[in-house]
């Protein structure tokens, strides 16, 4: 086991959440909204910290205390959500989907997408395009899309590690 997966596991340990003032939470929400608004852009901690008026040193912890997920992983869920929407609703090439969703490498996109959703972008597109048509008249599309967001309760590295462990076991 390498260093990074040890760190990822450590992050998942339940922790008592600090009480945060509504004023702080409202400002942290602004950082979360910024990710939502432009998830394809780069969101280094410094930029997010500036949006919410929190020091760089405290930002990631404050964000996780508020929303239950580290900011970089929240960004990843939004990018995957965006990628799934583009795959489902457009005929853009997989390369274009990767770039428009915020990845700068097709390889990283394909690998991460598979780790999170369990299937390749191409397989996902084929399966979802057929199913989407039936749902969209019954729910406002913007909420339907949010409900398609991956529920990433563990780090991607950890998810990858567990998947390979399961494969080895089976």
């Amino acid at each position: 086991m390498n260093h990074r997966s040890i760190k990822a596991r450590h992050q998942e340990r339940p922790r008592h959440r600090a009480r945060q003032s509504p004023e702080l939470l409202r400002r942290l929400l602004r950082a979360k909204d910024s990710i939502d608004k432009a998830s394809h852009e780069a969101w280094p901690v410094r930029r997010l910290a500036r949006v919410s008026g929190v020091s760089e040193a405290h930002f990631a912890r404050s964000f996780k205390d508020a929303f239950g997920i580290p900011p970089h992983r929240y960004l990843l869920t939004r990018r995957i959500e965006r990628a799934t929407a583009l795959l489902r609703e457009t005929s853009l090439s997989i390369t274009d989907v990767a770039f428009q969703a915020g990845w700068d490498s097709l390889g990283t996109f394909g690998r991460t997408f598979r780790d999170v959703t369990g299937e390749s972008p191409g397989a996902f597109r084929l399966r979802e395009k057929a199913a989407m048509q039936e749902r969209q008249d019954q729910m406002p599309v913007c909420f339907l899309k949010a409900s398609n967001r991956p529920d990433l309760t563990i780090a991607v590295l950890e998810k990858r590690r567990r998947a390979s462990k399961d494969n080895n076991a089976g």
Binding site: P22, L25, L29
Partner: peptide, 14 residues
């Protein structure tokens, strides 16, 4: 409740 509102966790409004 104030915390929940401030973190944008109240239900959708249209």
């Amino acid at each position: 409740i104030s915390a929940i509102v401030a973190k944008g966790a109240m239900p959708p409004l249209v």
